[in-house]
């Protein structure tokens, strides 16, 4: 019986939400395949993490090793490689996260197990697993075929599945011997770096005026800031605006920036890439202004305006001035 396995991602004793999302999906897939969904827990001391997932899966495979105390790509790859070669699951789910993005492709190349990366869905079709992922600025869905391989890997985009799980099990815990018999020196973890803090805390604002690459250049920022002042809004932004140093990092909304939950979020010239949306989709109301009627942002916004932000901004300003 070839299982579905889910790698539980955790940092500093906390399980990342994506782990539960993957377990939920893994359980569904296992049922469709007539098998079971087991969790994989790696760590220096895995007990705390195992306890937290034990009621959601029938079994947990775990490898404990001092070299797994902090995430380090080569240690994770070696542990995963040893574990899945021994247990031979038909499908392994790994988060498409800063860690999974690094070692899952290496694992795939090492074992020649096909990898579908950044998947938003997986389904069983006539006994075969098929993956769905986004391409071309998230405008197209692609179905990925594993070419009938007996063992496959998939990395999963955060937020693709519900993390609400009904407890249904008391997991049997199976310890696998650590393959890390010598110290890994090619790559070493040094330290974690905390996120930057700045003068404006965008997570506290009720109204955010958020700008994207559509801004065009830093010379247009004063106009945005003036409008924000009139509106009583704080200015936030998408990643390219930070990459180009138009605004500081602490203003960035998204997976690699801040998660915000204002009453109203106004997106100006932001296309709506998932990494951005993940940071603002819980806003009370989302208003998007974009000149492309097919921009994905209109798929998650409550209100949309197809138009040029540089025409809308002065018009808004005029209304506010005359009020």
């Amino acid at each position: 019986m070839s299982q579905v396995c889910v790698l539980v991602e955790h940092r500093q004793g906390e399980i990342q939400e994506i782990s539960y999302e993957m377990i939920g999906k893994g359980r569904q897939l296992a049922e469709a395949l007539g098998t079971e969904c087991y969790a994989i827990v790696l760590g220096a001391d895995a007990r705390g993490i195992i306890e937290k997932v034990a009621s959601y899966v029938p079994g947990v495979y775990s490898i404990e090793d001092p070299q797994l105390a902090e995430y380090n790509a080569p240690a994770y790859q070696a542990a995963m490689s040893a574990l899945i070669q021994e247990k031979r699951p038909q499908l392994v789910l790994i988060g498409h996260t800063a860690s999974g993005m690094e070692f899952a492709p290496r694992l795939s190349a090492e074992l020649r197990w096909p990898l579908a990366s950044d998947c938003i869905d997986l389904a069983v079709n006539e006994g075969c697993v098929e993956a769905t992922r986004k391409m071309y600025s998230d405008k197209v869905n692609a179905r990925i075929d594993f070419k009938a391989a007996p063992h496959c890997l998939a990395t999963i985009r955060a937020g693709s599945f519900s993390s609400e799980l009904a407890p249904a099990h008391t997991a049997e815990v199976i310890t696998v011997a650590s393959p890390l018999t010598t110290e890994i020196s090619a790559r070493r973890f040094v330290r974690l770096l905390a996120s930057e803090v700045g003068d404006v805390d965008i997570t506290q604002a009720d109204l955010l005026l958020s700008v994207g690459r559509g801004l065009g250049g830093p010379e247009y920022l004063p106009e945005v800031e003036a409008l924000a002042k009139q509106l009583g809004a704080a200015v936030s932004c998408s990643r390219p605006v930070v990459d180009k140093n138009w605004l500081p990092k602490e203003r960035q909304v998204g997976t690699s920036g801040k998660k915000v939950k204002p009453k109203v979020y106004i997106a100006l010239g932001i296309s709506g890439a998932f990494q951005h949306v993940a940071g603002m989709k819980n806003a009370g109301t989302i208003i998007a202004i974009n000149k492309d009627p097919k921009a994905p942002i209109f798929g998650i916004a409550d209100y949309g305006i197809v138009g040029d932000m540089f025409e809308i901004m002065p018009a808004l300003s005029k209304i506010l001035t005359s009020a």
Partner: peptide, 14 residues
Amino acid sequence: RELEGGMGENCELT
């Protein structure tokens, strides 16, 4: 390396 939520990590490679 950039991690989620604005966090980062330093690592050494040969």
